[in-house]
Design a protein around this nucleic acid. Structure first.
Lengths: 211, 211
DNA sequence: GTTGGATTAGTCTGAGTGGACTAATCCAAC
DNA sequence: GTTGGATTAGTCCACTCAGACTAATCCAAC
């Protein structure tokens, strides 16, 4: 109880704000609305999340119906507490930038594990992948706009496109610098790290401003 | 066994590429190198990760020393397999953009749970937060550069700065559009979702291009 | 008409994580 | 000199999640 609602939890609440529903129906609607581009949904997690929300009184089982001899379906509805919680969590998510740890950051932190030439190859590969990703997202976005979908339903897609574009530019810059020799590390003494008999890296040490 | 090395796992391998070490020392060095800005490190996870890596033969315990009557310290070293794995994982991380689910995306997907005025307030709050975050990162970055730290050790910080700047611009744009009325949702019939007796949202449906 | 693939609906398990807890030692201030 | 807070070092548990598994039903093609 009381730890912040997970993205999937918020999604369930959001779905139930559209009327009572059983978990499987949520999953379908989530796919229909393409919410699964903004939130990681897996089958197992969904049911578990629903259970948790029910346990903390944010949603309530209404009835358990059954069609033929298929497994029982439990239909849930949001409670008032659920609405409030969703509301608060939304405000929080919007207002407070969270510390996140994108994988590219991790990779960049340890990039000197690879020789420069190899890093360059991999970065160029990423560039290509990002280009086609960007194109795909843009095409999809335009298609939906032309279909007359309201903009507010596509904000997450706008954000994704912006992010991918930003990453692409960054990666291009890096690859360019590497290629032009404006960025190097193999001549750095402290980077014998991949081989035995290394010298220790000098630490970054006393950060004056930890944000 | 055999599922991809986690960021923390890679970090451990990276540390041990700098010579044998016990977990606690890793933690310190990680902090010294500010790697904890790029990878989420918690105390508990570290020991667990070390155990896992040892179990799959990527690292090996060397000796268990003890100073005074303090708990035993087990010193680990990378194996050849460990080096190879780290190398491959690095290539992968660099080359393949991963599907990630930043919280802002989630928030934007459900933004119509809030009334426009409130969304605007929260977005403005985020703007302020992002501004000071950006300033802090930039100050830290410049300080380290002036100290003569090689650029390749600050790439993850460069990336963070780029990301935050991108987010700031995006959020500013959104807030501006909201304020100017170029972005609205309260007049949208399908968004009675927060109240009982709703009309269902129309689905996004058949996406032609799923990237 | 029956074989087999998609859909409907849900359970179970193992892996990974965060935070709380233990416990000894060092050092600085009172 | 002793009290208390930081540091050193590590264990443990509860929570969460992803993916594998179950199992019934529908429908289309052969």
């Amino acid at each position: 109880m009381s730890r912040p609602i997970t993205p999937l939890g918020l999604t369930v609440l959001r779905m139930l704000c559209g009327g009572p529903m059983h978990p499987y129906e949520m999953q379908q609607r989530i796919r229909d609305h393409a919410y699964d581009h903004a939130v990681k949904i897996t089958h197992g997690a969904l049911y578990h999340t629903v259970e948790r929300l029910a346990a903390s009184g944010l949603i309530e089982p209404m009835e358990t119906s059954r069609e033929g001899r298929r497994p029982e379906r439990t239909v849930y509805a949001v409670t008032a507490a659920g609405r409030d919680t969703a509301h608060m969590r939304m405000s929080d998510l919007l207002a407070k930038p969270a510390e996140e740890f994108p994988l590219l950051g991790t990779a960049l932190a340890f990039v000197n594990l690879l020789p420069e030439t190899e890093a360059l190859v991999q970065l160029r590969a990423r560039e290509v992948a990002l280009e086609s990703l960007l194109a795909a997202h843009q095409t999809a976005h335009e298609a939906l706009l032309k279909r007359g979908l309201a903009r507010h339903k596509l904000l997450d897609q706008e954000w994704t496109i912006t992010r991918v574009r930003g990453e692409l530019e960054f990666v291009r810059g890096l690859a360019g610098d590497l290629e032009a020799g404006r960025l190097t590390w193999e001549d750095d003494d402290s980077v014998t790290a991949c081989h035995p008999d290394h010298e220790r890296d000098e630490p970054v040490a006393e950060e004056t401003t930890r944000p």
